[in-house]
Design a protein around this nucleic acid. Sequence first.
DNA 1: CTGACTGCAAACGTTTTGCACGGTA
DNA 2: TACCGTGCAAAACGTTTGCAGTCAG
Lengths: 132, 132
Amino acid sequence: MDYTTILKEYKLKVTPQRLAIVEELHSHGHLNIDDLYALLQKKFPTISLATIYKNIHAMLDKIFLSEVKIPNEKSVYELVKEQHAHVICSNCQKIVDVHVDTSSLEKEAESFSSFELNEIAVVFTGVCSDCK
Amino acid sequence: MDYTTILKEYKLKVTPQRLAIVEELHSHGHLNIDDLYALLQKKFPTISLATIYKNIHAMLDKIFLSEVKIPNEKSVYELVKEQHAHVICSNCQKIVDVHVDTSSLEKEAESFSSFELNEIAVVFTGVCSDCK
DNA sequence: CTGACTGCAAACGTTTTGCACGGTA
DNA sequence: TACCGTGCAAAACGTTTGCAGTCAG
């Protein structure tokens, strides 16, 4: 996938730092701010946290990036893909995407609440196969 | 329900401030720290945020209180009830509980991830009937 | 009476802001 | 060239801690 094009589409200038953030998110899937900072420092020893925060927010605003809030953990960020749920290991904090069918759940919730729903966030917590 | 008994069960001293926190959570359902602080100041003009934070953590530790992390919003706290999902209005921030059946979702996620799951957090975002 | 709780103030970690400089388009 | 983005330092913010005084058990 071509990140330069994605950034341009959203009218964001293609800077090396910004490109690197997107690439790291692509290759790692989910990263919190600290992880991102540590990874980026390898390529850009002088990069600042401010730059990372500013870029994360710029991309959240353009909604091709999303924040995943996890019980008892720091938020992680990921590039927007198809709708999916997250599974996190309470021991090693590994996060895995799972594609589960939430349509019946959504219908159920819609009828009970009489809300018009448009988003669903599902986070499972458990113990991964390596940790058990 | 008798909150004095609940607090004693969990070996927490029954102070007026602590009781008030639990009562506010019971009557409002979900509250964030700021809301709680504003409500409690009416009864206890000198109450400090530190007291609220300390109590919230004491009760989270004893797991009769839970934290609900909501996309784009501050966390809210609620007394533990049966497993349920949350629906939040993106316009007025109202939060409603919905009792939906997540067992098939959980099975699905368990088989895909090969995790041993024990918790599930589901938050729907939409527009409530008043706001649309 | 003893340990736990409160409220204040200070400390802390994280996130945001202002600004001068540099780079993209 | 004009504007957006970067990096630094400072500020702001939410949360936590230490401590002396107070209260519940």
